[in-house]
Design a protein around this nucleic acid. Sequence first.
RNA 1: CGCGGGGUGGAGCAGUCUGGUUAGCUCGGAUGGCUCAUAACCAUCAGGUCGCAGGUUCAAAUCCUGCCCCCGCAACCA
Length: 494
Amino acid sequence: MDKKLYITTAIPYVNGTPHIGNALDYLLADIWTRYQKQNGHDVRFQVGTDEHGNKIAAKAAEAGLDPKSYTDQTYLNFEKLMKKVGAGYTDFVRTTDPHHIQSVQYIWQQLQPYIYKGNYEGWYCVGCESFVSDKEATANNGVCPDHNQPYQRLSEANYYFKTSAFTDKVREAIETNQMQIVPEFRKKEFLELMKDGLQDVSISRPKKNLSWGIPVPGDPTQVMYVWLDALANYITILGYPDQPAWKEYWPADVQIIGKDILRFHAGLWPSMLFGLGLELPKKLLVHGHINVGNTKMSKTIGNIVDPNQVIDEYGLDAFRYYFSRHIPTLDDGDFTWEKFENSYNTELANDLGNVIRRVSSMLTRYQAGVIGEAPQGEHDMGAYHAAMENLEFNRAIDEVWLMVKSLNQYIENVKPWEIAKNVAKDAEAAAHLAEVLAYSVGALLQIGDLLVPFLPATADNIHKTFETGVIVASEAVLFPRIYKHTTDPNAPKA
RNA sequence: CGCGGGGUGGAGCAGUCUGGUUAGCUCGGAUGGCUCAUAACCAUCAGGUCGCAGGUUCAAAUCCUGCCCCCGCAACCA
């Protein structure tokens, strides 16, 4: 009944500004959380920031700050975005939190049996003070573009985590859906990727190169490499290992990640958990990326869409609507201002906003706002709930819009305005009208229920307006039409 | 022969696993209706060789074979 559930989001690296992909993470997790809470579950919803690593240290130095002071400022940008998309998270982890640091060091010690010392060899740029991948080195013809000097072949001492030891267990967990990767094609993709086995992962760096990180227990010359540190957040924030409450929420029910970080969450992370003797998360929800006009979003192209701007110009629910319905939950999606505005005007304004207004207006006009007893909405919600369970949120919303459409059709068929003409002289007509309007309100209230996870403010508005049996004075128009990026078809011609 | 996803009316998609009514939905277009409503809503119509070529079958968008095209990924990216 009130089962305890746990959902997590990826923790972004705080050296940049938050982007739309981060917003998508928070939104999806929030939708799931609101849905589960509506169904009576107790949900913990984690968010956080990843704050270690040499890139942070470098950025901080540029700004003339020590790394911690720097991240104390930048993590706020992410917190602001989480709040802005309405994410009702319960736990915020920063990898620089003392508890997280202690806990990660504990984890390191627990994983000792699977940690060994080795050498990492690769292309190194002295200017960057970091290694680059072979791919990147090749792409740059062996010369660092930032420092204009050739990469050197270097090798350094590292600790390695024996991920390879867990290959079979991880594969089995994925194949049997003990840890279910959603959607299915991502699961296939990853199984294919690991078919030759998991490769051991370097999990530390010499301190001289990377001084901003969690110290390796028992070896002052090394600090931990970020992934071990970052992935651990999902359990450290629950209080692992010292606060027993963590056991009530782990394993996570859903971990939300982008497709770009699937391999870390499907390979390294389960290996860590096996090494610790912990259960694996039940599901990994892998969402896609958001393109702009079918082109990748990139700073170079300059087509970055700022989620803040969308929310500022159209409102929070409008943002949540587009990104939950028109960006498929489990695949890549496309955003353009034209598409966004078009769906806002036709679907939110013309369909939803308008039908709410026409019902409340008729009630006010014909019955002085008195609704009476609204019957239970009778639309079959099976498809909606199935879609929610399958983590296909976009399909769930589609169902809601079918209801909006059928309500409009119903109103058109029974023509309350015709019935209203006879009310004065015909008691039967009055009863009929009341019944029709009450039925419409019942449908709207049901729509409101289904919108709770997606458009909290709108759902709240619907409930407040209709649930008391008397219309609560309607204020401003819901979703007024906006023409900033598209043409108003009704605009007078110049 | 690296792996995966996809190619369905102008646009975006569903349907393909478990072949079978006139291939469905949303947006856009045209026409008509209505007037309660945010010039919103409702109805009807136009528009599709279901990537190409073969094959299996009474019957294929759906199964099989070959080919073409587009898009991701290809491991330390935090």
